[in-house]
Simulated assay, not measured.
Amino acid sequence: MSTSTSTSERVVLITGAGSGIGRAMAMAFADTGARVVAADLDSAAVERTAADIGKAAVAVAADISDEASVAAMVETAIDAFGRVDVLCNNAGIMDDMALPANLAIDLWERVLKINLTGTFLVTRAVLPHMLRQGGGVIVNTGSEASLRGGTAGVAYTASKHGVAGLTKSVAWAYAKDGIRCNAILPGPTITGIGRGTSFDEAGSARLAPVLALGDRIAQPEQMASVAVFLASDAASFVNGALVPVDGGWAAG
Rank of each mutant, 00 (worst) to 15 (best):
R124D: 05
G135P: 08
W108D: 10
A44G: 04
E109L: 06
G162F: 14
D79H: 02
I138H: 04
T191C: 02
R35C: 05
N115H: 09
L116N: 00
R180C: 12
D215Y: 12
A39N: 05
V58A: 01
R180M: 11
G196A: 00
A183V: 01
V70K: 07
L112G: 00
R10M: 09
L131S: 03
D233I: 15
R110L: 01
T15E: 00
V137W: 11
H129Y: 14
A34Q: 14
R10Y: 07
R124F: 03
A155C: 02
A77G: 06
A173M: 04
G142I: 04
A30L: 03
K160H: 12
R216L: 09
I21W: 08
A98W: 03
E144F: 15
I53E: 01
L41D: 07
D52C: 06
N102P: 00
G16M: 11
V245P: 05
L87P: 00
A59M: 10
A164W: 04
A71V: 12
I105T: 09
V36I: 15
L207M: 03
I64Q: 10
A30R: 00
F229T: 02
T191N: 08
I53R: 08
A77P: 07
G248D: 09
T32P: 04
L116W: 05
V12M: 10
G149W: 08
Y174C: 14
F81Y: 11
D42S: 03
A231V: 02
A155K: 03
D233A: 15
S19M: 10
T197Y: 05
A24G: 01
D200W: 06
A91I: 09
G247P: 05
A234F: 13
F120M: 10
G240A: 13
D79Q: 10
P128A: 14
M130V: 02
A241S: 12
K176H: 02
L107V: 10
